[in-house]
Simulated scan of single mutants.
Amino acid sequence: EMDKIIIIIIMIIDLLDLDPVPQTPVFDMGTDTRTEGDAVTLTVTPVGLQERRGSNVSLTLDMCTPGCTEPYGYGAQLSPRDQSAQEYLRQGTHVLTPAMLHKRAMDDQALQAEFYETPMNFVDPKEYNYPGLVRKNRYKTILPNTHSRVILKSQDEDDFLTTYINANYLKGYGGQECSYIATQGPTVNTVGDFWRMVWQERSPIIVMITNLEEKNEKCAEYWPEDTVTHEGIEITVVTVTQEDDYSLRVFTLKFGDEERSLRQYWYTSWPDQKTPDKAPPLLELVKEVERAREEAPPSSGPIIVHCSAGIGRTGCFIATSILCKQLRTEGVVDILRTTCQLRLDRGGMIQTCEQYQFVHHVLSLFEKQLSHTAEE
């Protein structure tokens, strides 16, 4: 009964929303500089339509989401608010030609309006009502969207905890399934699960975009100095190379009779709470990782990308990779479309307005490099 009353009240508020929506909403500009991670720190000051479009404000308002574990299909009903957020994310698009891209990258106001209009699509924590799960999540409000979560194979399929990892499959360029896995920085409790995932998914590459500590712990050091065994998987460091903006570790993984190679790119020049001053290092990393993917065995699985929460910097990296391919292939980019697609599969991808602007800057730089090469 209570749920019905709340729905009716929300609908009445919707109908009575007489405030004209300002063209350029007024935002609490303090939001972008807060620490990445806990969605509690991510709330924006709601303006007009924004909170109804599925920003995380809707998590606190929307008490009518059924506690279902499969929100797509299986007879689950989405509340009107969740439905409009889903529709927006499925349809959002803004194709940019090179000239439009360069202009747009400089238009902070337009990018702010677009960013705050786009639903975050965070998971309602009620969808994960399992005892003991708290120990498996770094941030209690950043959870994997259920339909695309990575499910760990387990001896006991009925024991939800043994199948759970805070990670989602993400589509790549052209909607290619399972191109990437976005996940949280492993915690002391989840290092074993992380390596189970690396092996299960046949991942050839890990991209790590966080320091181990930035004011507080952002990620556990999940790899060894030389060798270690987790969950029966023997992990050995073969080489460590220090580049300007990242270090590259090459590992050998052994499980049973099988042996595989794995590369970890640890990108350290992304300061906490800010986007990098320089787009070039991130762009170089994106190119380097794509080259490594092309050289990996054909049987390889998704590239695993993580920061601390697995949505902010992780979202920037994956979006940039996809969009560089789009620009090379089609000569245009659709940054909004890519952001929407990523958020359908993992809520909160590209976490702050600053990061959204930064992705535009990186793509603008990449386009200039492309056209410069073409002229030569």
Rank of each mutant, 00 (worst) to 15 (best):
I6H: 14
I6A: 15
M11T: 11
I12L: 13
D14S: 10
L15I: 06
D17G: 07
L18Y: 11
V21N: 11
P22W: 08
P25L: 10
P25W: 03
F27W: 09
E36S: 13
T41H: 10
P46R: 04
T60D: 08
L61K: 13
D62A: 03
D62V: 01
T69R: 14
Y74A: 15
Y74K: 13
D82W: 06
S84N: 08
Q86T: 07
E87I: 15
R90C: 11
Q91W: 06
G92L: 05
L101H: 08
A105P: 02
Q109I: 06
A113F: 03
E117F: 11
E127W: 13
G132E: 08
L133Q: 05
R135C: 12
R138M: 03
T141V: 00
I142H: 00
F160N: 04
Y164P: 03
I165T: 02
I165P: 00
A167N: 10
K171D: 15
K171C: 13
G175Q: 11
I181Q: 06
A182K: 06
G185M: 01
N189S: 12
T190M: 06
G192I: 00
F194H: 06
R196E: 06
M197S: 07
V198I: 14
Q200I: 06
E201L: 06
I205W: 00
I206S: 03
T210E: 03
E213Y: 09
K215C: 02
K215A: 10
K218V: 09
K218H: 12
W223T: 07
E225S: 12
V228R: 12
H230V: 01
G232C: 09
I233G: 06
T236Q: 13
V250C: 12
T252W: 00
E259S: 14
R260P: 05
S261I: 07
Q264S: 01
W266R: 15
V286R: 01
A292M: 10
P297E: 07
S299L: 09
S299K: 14
S300A: 15
I304D: 04
S308M: 05
R313H: 05
T320C: 14
L327N: 09
E330M: 07
D334M: 06
L344F: 00
L344H: 01
L344I: 15
C353I: 09
Q355F: 10
